[in-house]
């Protein structure tokens, strides 16, 4: 169990306050259906890992939460407000860091801090200085002259220094070295440690998601295909291996997906109780050789149709 989860478990909230509420969200770009009837609710204090393949719709969803995209279908509410209708009211409470960074490269770190600080009433300059020292960012350094990792740290610095109520991270550690990734994870853990902070964390690096998230949402082709507590996901998903007397077509077992065949043996990821799986296997005429626990990575690979490891 990750550090984030442990801290989360320690402070289960009695009264759940909704931070994000997305209902029936749909979005089309040309002929491409980027989001299709997405429903998502996120309560205060939750760390949500948003996973999915490239082009699955993760960034589109996050952009809707930031008000950068208008909802074509459905509704989006963040802190109970429409982020398009009230950008200052919503954005002043969100810390955002994206893969692209997109910081103004002509600014110095000092200028970035000074400029960013103006927008957030809760800006904590002491905390900002601490983070800046920790990240090794010189005030006089120009953002354009920093390496990708340092720029990510600068982005993280201004996203965290006002202790945001909601931290939105869109593939923040993509393409970065392990040390910067550790800093980003550390930041998430610190944010979690702050009472009542909420994190939505989109990443390809599923090990990281497992480490810090307590809930996982998997998006595929614009649809939410999985939305569960991480512990439940790991508890209910199994890798099954079934043997048959002779080569047959993939057996029909409810909750199984990502079937792969090798000779007369079939493997899949199955979301069901062991007893139910056993019954279904018996019914199909096969023999259940083994069931093992799976990682988030295995589930992701199976959902996306890739070969299981």
């Amino acid at each position: 169990m990750g550090q984030g989860q442990r801290q989360r478990k320690d402070r289960r909230w009695t009264v759940a306050e909704t931070v994000i509420e997305v209902k029936g969200l749909g979005r089309t770009f040309g002929n491409h259906r980027a989001l299709d009837g997405v429903n998502l609710t996120l309560e205060r204090g939750t760390v949500l890992g948003l996973v999915g393949q490239n082009g699955a719709g993760k960034t589109t969803l996050i952009k809707h939460l930031l008000g950068l995209l208008r909802a074509e279908e459905g509704t989006v509410r963040v802190f109970g407000k429409d982020p398009v209708a009230d950008p200052p009211g919503v954005l002043s409470r969100i810390g955002y860091l994206s893969e692209e960074g997109d910081l103004p490269m002509w600014m110095k770190v000092e200028e970035l801090v000074r400029y960013s600080a103006a927008f957030y009433p809760g800006w904590d300059q002491q905390y900002c200085d601490t983070l800046q020292k920790e990240f090794g960012l010189s005030s006089s350094a120009k953002l354009g002259s920093l390496s990708k990792g340092q720029r990510a740290r600068a982005g993280l610095l201004v996203a965290l220094a006002f202790r945001p109520e909601l931290l939105l991270l869109d593939e923040p550690s993509s393409g970065l070295d392990p040390i910067v990734r550790r800093d980003i994870l550390g930041a998430i853990i610190r944010t979690i440690a702050d009472e009542g902070r909420t994190v939505l964390f989109s990443s390809h690096l599923l090990a990281e998601v497992e480490q810090v998230s307590d809930r996982v949402v998997m998006v595929q082709a614009g649809k939410v295909v999985l939305d569960e507590e991480l512990a439940d996901v790991k508890e209910t998903h199994h890798r099954i291996e079934i043997a048959f007397e002779q080569a047959v077509a993939a057996p029909i077992i409810e909750g199984a997906f990502g079937w792969q065949c090798e000779g007369n043996r079939w493997t899949a990821i199955c979301r069901a109780d062991i007893e139910d799986i056993q019954l279904a296997v018996d019914k199909s005429g096969g023999r259940l050789i083994r069931t093992v626990g799976v990682s988030l990575d295995d589930i992701f690979m199976a959902r996306s149709g890739s070969k299981l490891g």
Partner: peptide, 26 residues
């Protein structure tokens, strides 16, 4: 970048200018 990386372990915190009085001023 290379020159900055070489001294990146020395972080200098400076606040040479006053904070902006409002978001509009920033």
């Amino acid at each position: 970048r290379e020159s900055v990386e070489a001294v990146s372990d020395i972080a200098v915190i400076q606040h040479s200018k006053k904070p902006f009085r409002s978001p509009e001023a920033a």
